[in-house]
């Protein structure tokens, strides 16, 4: 359970998050959408602890994350760009990440098999293609069967087959009770996957709720239209 209240963040003179309130519930897939520079990546990085909080609270299962790190034991993170140490092998990276998790977490490496990644794991990462690296990125995010996964544009760079595998994984994880929180600019994908949608614009939440509610309120059959309406409507 993710609960964010009054979250503000500024970089120099630029105020990126201007009081964000949102929730993401276990067992549901919550998609964060919004135009470019709306603050999506900053928001995600705040949840992970990569960006420090100026004001407001981020609670995970009722615990504030500010200055904490143990909570990340239970979070899987898949950043937008996957870059690993060039000279290490995939297996070494996985081993490193595993050693950095202290709890004897349950390991979920099913994705390795599904992506057919195993033969690639003993090669230095510099020899791997962008898509393969992205697969590795996804493996790392799900490796510890986390209570919550945070994904930034997860299907970018993946081929349709891999993309499908990952989406299935998301759906199954949510069904198993995981909080899935992702950003995407591909609205058809959001429509296909997400239960809830959060529309972020100019550092504020412009809409939050189940997708059908958004469609209903907007009076549009398709998400794309509904979102376009949100964007123009608030102007």
């Amino acid at each position: 359970m993710l609960l964010i209240q009054g979250l503000r963040k500024r970089f120099g003179r630029l105020e990126v998050l201007r009081g964000v309130d949102l929730t993401a519930a276990p067992g549901r897939i919550t998609a964060l959408v919004g135009p470019n520079a709306a603050g999506k990546s900053t928001l995600i990085k705040t949840i992970i602890g990569l960006v420090r909080i100026d004001e407001g609270t981020v609670l995970i299962d009722g615990q504030s994350i500010d200055g904490e790190r143990a909570y990340r034991e239970r979070i899987g993170y898949m950043p937008q760009a996957a870059r690993f140490p060039e000279q290490l092998t995939g297996r070494e990276v996985l081993a490193l990440v595993r050693r950095l998790r202290h709890a004897d977490a349950r390991i979920d490496d099913a994705l390795i098999g599904q992506f057919d990644l195993d033969p690639m794991l003993d090669r230095p990462i510099r020899t791997l293609s962008g898509g393969t690296r992205q697969k590795l990125n996804a493996v790392v995010a799900f490796l510890f069967a986390p209570d919550m996964v945070v994904l930034d544009e997860p299907t970018g760079g993946l081929d349709p087959v891999a993309s499908g595998i990952l989406k299935d994984k998301l759906i199954r994880s949510a069904a198993a009770g995981t909080t899935v929180f992702l950003t995407s600019h591909i609205l058809t994908e959001v429509e296909e996957l997400a239960h809830d949608i959060i529309f972020l614009m100019e550092g504020r939440v412009a809409f939050q709720g189940p997708i059908d509610q958004l469609l209903r309120e907007a009076g549009e059959p398709r998400l794309e239209r509904a979102v376009a309406r949100l964007m123009t409507g608030s102007r």
Binding site: G49, I75, R101
Partner: peptide, 13 residues
């Protein structure tokens, strides 16, 4: 190493 640093920081470290 920027992205890798981020990956590391996303771990409980």
């Amino acid at each position: 190493a920027r992205e890798f640093i981020e990956l590391l920081l996303a771990q409980p470290v």
